[in-house]
């Protein structure tokens, strides 16, 4: 059962990842972003199979939730029509292929050298419970400082984005 799920999620990750950058049916960036969401969701499925539940949840919350929303905002602020007309650039394609080949060789070499032969099953290090325990014992102080940091960020955002009495900026 697990193996079948693994193959399904891997295939989905790869397929959706390909559709993000190379989609024969649509050149709309919004579609690409949506496929990126699918890629991330299927990757979090892989994390679940490795028993890294916390990582899976964070993957969906942070990437599929926050980061993609940010992407969509940027895409919608830009001119989508202009992007659809643009052709693939030869130089860019070449660079992309070179980068992918290099990375693939690096990963294959690493796996060969480290000698991972048996299937990865996850050792429970990234599980939620030990992580929470660490956060609230050894790393309590940094954890609490981060909460102050979030408060600062929140107050700052409200402060910088609320309407001012005199709306327009004075040119200097």
């Amino acid at each position: 059962m697990q193996e079948i799920l693994f193959y399904i999620f891997s295939a989905l990750t790869l397929l959706c990842g390909l559709l993000v950058v190379f989609n024969p049916f649509s050149r709309n960036p919004v579609t690409s972003a949506m496929f990126l969401v699918l890629t991330i969701i299927s990757m979090s499925g892989l994390f679940v199979l490795l028993k890294a539940f916390f990582l899976a949840a964070v993957q969906i919350l942070v990437y599929a939730g926050a980061v993609i929303v940010l992407f969509l905002f940027v895409i919608m602020l830009l001119d989508v029509k202009d992007e659809e007309r643009r052709r693939y650039q030869k130089f860019g394609t070449f660079l992309g292929f070179a980068a992918v080949t290099g990375l693939a060789m690096l990963i294959i070499n690493t796996i060969k050298q480290s000698g991972v032969s048996q299937a990865l099953t996850g050792d429970g290090v990234a599980e939620t419970k030990p992580l929470g325990k660490l956060l609230f014992t050894d790393y309590l102080l940094p954890f609490e400082i981060v909460s102050i940091l979030l408060l600062v960020a929140m107050v700052g955002c409200i402060l910088l984005s609320k309407r001012e009495e005199t709306a327009e900026a004075e040119a200097e």
């Binding site: 600062v152 960020a153 107050v155 700052g156 402060l159 910088l160 001012e164 005199t166 900026a169 004075e170």
Partner: peptide
């Protein structure tokens, strides 16, 4: 991060 907000505090300028 506190200073990011502080430096842009005078938004009208």
């Amino acid at each position: 991060i506190t200073f990011y907000v502080l430096t842009s505090f005078e938004r009208h300028r």
